[in-house]
Computed example of a mutant assay.
Amino acid sequence: MAREGARPSYDPAGPDHALRTALQDLRTGRWMAMRTLLADTRQWWQWTQRTQVLAAAAAGTDVVRAWLAEEPGSGPATVMHARVCVERALRAQRERHRRTHELWIEAWDAAQSACHAAPQDPVPWVCLLALAQLDPEQRWEEHRAAAPDPMLPPGPWGLLAEAGRRDPYNREAHHRMLQFLYARGGSGRLAEAAGYAQWAAGQAPPGSALHVLPVYVRVERYRRDSGHDAALDLHWVAEDATREAHRALRSWFEHTHRAERSVPDLNHLAHALWGSLQFQDAARVFDAIGPYFTPPPWMYRTPDRDRAVEIFVQARDRCRAAADGFSTPR
């Protein structure tokens, strides 16, 4: 594979060219390309990913509402409506908007409708899981179900199980569970999230993106604790950090085809391997990334988030130089 050397940039579609075309159409207020794209999407992992990216782009528009008005019986349109409503509720919560609770209830109703309109689809259940983070006190009964393992805390386990019945090891569903655990707050809660990530990875088959979950938790711990203190780079060379990066490489990256790999997962894995000084393996992951940079986790390495791309390029160049030096006969 030819190496990508150009300066990378963030593209929510990543290498999914069909998704990029649908996004361009959506941004001009049209929905037909989105409809066609989703009709042609056959695998749940890709369906989950595409609907998430499309909803993020559509949340500030009425495009999906127009589609649903035109085709009120459409399952995909109903699912996309739920996606958009959830995205709006989560944004309102982040911005502490006064309509957060109203948007939350609207999103919950939309997700329930999607569950009925598309009973085999995991995404409506992923939507309900995403909304669980708006209830960190676990006031809703469905958010305090007993965990499948006694070492794990109560939470929206029933929602996760429903998503899993439709798409086992659904990547976004497990990330939404992590976000719920983060939202509960406190340093002890982060330990719960780490335990959950290890448990989920331990249940997953080779090739599952769940093997990368522990790497995400390590980034979250660094984000909360670092204060951008360079001394905390030791965080990444600790034995358990090195082991987590290595396991993600062996259990996920080496068992997947290029098209199946999430761009955020690739970026998190490259970052973890670089940080733990596993430069040769990191160079392989950087080659798989190509130009498809994602701001997290690189932006947590600098107080100036505009320098995230620069950090990425420096890490990529360092790893490639080390790999090339190792492979060159002396």
Rank of each mutant, 00 (worst) to 15 (best):
M1R: 11
A2K: 13
P8G: 09
P8Q: 02
S9T: 09
P12A: 08
P12K: 02
R20N: 11
L23E: 01
L26W: 03
G29D: 12
R35V: 10
T36K: 14
Q52E: 15
Q52G: 11
A66S: 07
E71R: 15
P72Q: 06
G73I: 08
G75I: 12
A77G: 05
M80F: 10
R96M: 03
R96N: 09
L103V: 09
W104R: 07
A110G: 09
Q112H: 15
Q120V: 10
Q120P: 15
P124K: 06
C127T: 07
P136R: 04
R139A: 11
W140H: 11
G158T: 13
R171H: 14
Y182E: 04
R184A: 04
R189L: 10
R189H: 13
A191D: 14
W199T: 07
A204V: 12
L210H: 01
R218M: 02
V219S: 03
D225V: 12
S226N: 02
A238E: 00
D240R: 07
A241Y: 00
T242D: 06
T242F: 03
H246W: 12
A248Q: 02
L249D: 07
S251E: 14
F253E: 01
H255G: 00
N267T: 08
A283I: 12
A283P: 04
V285Y: 00
F286K: 01
D287G: 09
A288D: 08
G290D: 04
T294C: 04
M299V: 12
E310R: 06
F312L: 05
R316V: 03
R318H: 14
A323D: 08
P329N: 10
